Amino acid sequence: MMPIDTFRYVKNNQTSRDLDNLTQLYQPIIGNDAQALYLYFQSFFDNGNYDHKVTDILNHLQFGAPRLNEALDFLTAMGLVALYQTVEGVYLVKLNSPLDREHFLAHAVYRKLLEARIGEVAVKELEYVLPQDVTNQSKRFSDVFGHVEKSASAKTVMSSAVQFDLESFKRLMQRDGLFFKDEQADVVTLYSIAERYHLNWFDTYQLAKKTAIDGEIAPKRMVKDRQNETQQTTTTSFTESEQALIREAKSSAALPFLEKIKQTRRAVVTSSEKQLLKDLAAMSFLDEVINIMVLYTLNKTKSANLNKPYLMKVANDFSYQKITSAEEAVLKMRSFTERKKSPSKQAKPKTKTNVPAWSNPDFKDNTTPEMQAKLDSQKQGLLEKLRKAGE
């Protein structure tokens, strides 16, 4: 939003004033500006009867457009506000009520965000607590509305928001030996990835397992993998050998790929080479790119062992060039090879110089004793002629 823009409220969108949950649950996450903006929208809600200027908000809240837009980002990200724009350029503001305490804390990602701000102990104090000896006497939906269930053929309506089952995700992690480096930060990132690429919690787990580094969840590699999936396939033609290499690089993890190459050279993977593969993964390279770099390095150095300095030079160049797929890596390697095969520049013709050859530090004197005696005789003859001419 810019100060000159106009906005109006969505009709019939009056929300409840739940200041307790807004302050206790949302405010530590969204900040004071976003909370103030949300309360402003609630207080000045007019059922969409009038258009308003964004300058009205800025004047009332006493901050500028950058802070306003940052506050809007937090409100829309947390589902408290939905922002639309008409073809005429007018913004529409739709307000949503804050989640109640039970549903907010049951949302795995929201809970992690709140714990990151105020700590796990403080969040624990906000939970609903029921006595241990109580039994639930509430009726189920099907107990009361069973006739509706029988006649209805439509599928159950689910919320459009991503439902991320963190507990099931963590159970699979425990089964497969995966772990978080920073659970609070990683859970938030996983939720963002799931939302951005429209993944359910199981698809997100499969992606996390595929891109993990020695069992550690690697969100950056997850993002790069999904970016490769969404990018259009390059139209550049590859040779049959390049296509075979790309297929092999994409179908194998880095360590098994290196082991296959080592077997053909009657060698084994060393511990330092395993660590080198982990270092490349930590640079957020996908296995398919690491495989191309490894093969190129082994072929270039004509060795059964990985040359770390050379491989890291290639990796640094790949990182700078933002190479993220096997296709891009093969094209880069092709350019390296073509550049090496290109004819070198013709040697520049030697220019004449007055500098004597013997002044060159690499000059070698190949004069024989007989030649030296003749030169000495000629020298004496010239000196004798100069002496007589001076008399």
Rank of each mutant, 00 (worst) to 15 (best):
E149A: 02
F180N: 12
F145V: 04
A185G: 05
A194M: 09
K210C: 01
H198T: 14
S159V: 12
H147L: 07
L166D: 05
N136R: 09
L114V: 03
K155E: 13
D143K: 03
Q206F: 00
N136A: 08
L178C: 02
K150V: 11
F145P: 00
G215F: 09
V187S: 00
A212H: 12
E183S: 08
V134G: 01
F180K: 12
F202S: 11
F180P: 11
D186F: 02
N136C: 10
T204E: 05
E216R: 09
D143T: 01
H198A: 15
A212I: 10
Q206H: 03
R140P: 00
M222T: 12
K112L: 11
K210L: 01
L172H: 14
K124M: 08
E229C: 07
K181C: 00
E115K: 08
L178A: 04
S142A: 14
A194D: 08
R226D: 03
E125N: 01
E115P: 07
V148M: 14
L172W: 14
A194F: 10
R221N: 00
T135A: 03
A208S: 02
D186A: 01
D225S: 15
F141Y: 13
G215R: 12
K181M: 09
D214F: 00
E229Q: 15
N228S: 06
H198Q: 15
F202P: 00
K209S: 03
Q137D: 14
D186N: 08
V123F: 07
L130Y: 07
I217Y: 02
F164T: 06
G177I: 13
V223D: 04
T204W: 06
T204L: 13
L113G: 01
A161F: 08
V188R: 13
V187F: 00
A108G: 10
I217T: 08
A122P: 11
F141P: 05
K209W: 02
D133G: 11
S153Y: 14
Q132F: 03
S159F: 09
M158I: 10
M158L: 12
I118M: 05
D203Q: 15
V157E: 02
A154N: 06
K155N: 12
R175S: 01
V223H: 01
R196V: 06
S142I: 14
R111H: 03
L178M: 12
A108K: 07
A185H: 12
T156W: 01
A185M: 12
F141K: 10
L207F: 02
S142E: 14
A218K: 06
V162R: 00
N200Y: 03
G215D: 09
K170H: 07
V129Y: 13
K124Y: 05
V157A: 01
N200I: 04
K220I: 09
I118A: 04
K209E: 04
V121G: 03
Q132Y: 01
